[in-house]
Amino acid sequence: MIVEGSYPLPGSPDVIWDLLMDPDVLAKVMPGTKALSRTAPDRYEGTMGVGIGPITAAEFELTITLTDLQRPASYTMQIDGKGRFGFTRGTANVELASEGVGTVMRYRADLQVGGKIAGLGQRLLDSVSRMLTRQGLDALNRELTARLT
C-alpha cells in the first residue's frame, strides 16, 4: 500500500525538523499514540491504539528507525508495527522544502499490512491510512502554529 502526498506547513524546515524528531511532539500528533519514547538516537518505540467506527481500538507496538538523515531536507523511516489484529511494516520518506514563508512536506510511504486486519479490512485500508495521515498532519500543523505565535 502506498500512502503519499504533500502538506503545507508554517515555519522553516529547520523548525519542523526539530518537531519531527521530538518524541513528545510525535506522541501528541500521531493519532492514537498512547506512549512513545526514544530508545536510541535514531530509534523510537511506542504503543498506538487505532479504532475505526465499530472496530474496537486495538493496541499495537510500533518501532520506527530513522535512516538517511539529511537535516533539514529529508529522512527515511523504517516502520515496524505488531498487534493483535495484524502487522505493518515498510518505509516512509519525508522531504521538507522551504516554499515562500513556510515549508512543504512531501511524504511517501510503502507499507505492507498483514494479518486479520488485512484480510477483513482490506477495502478500508487505503481510506483509513489517508484519514490517519490527514489527522496527524493537521495536528502537526496546529502544534506548529501554536509554537510560532
Partner: peptide, 8 residues
C-alpha cells in the same frame, strides 16, 4: 465484527 473480535 464481534465474531471476528474486531469489535468488543
Amino acid at each position: 465484527a464481534m465474531n471476528f473480535r474486531l469489535a468488543a
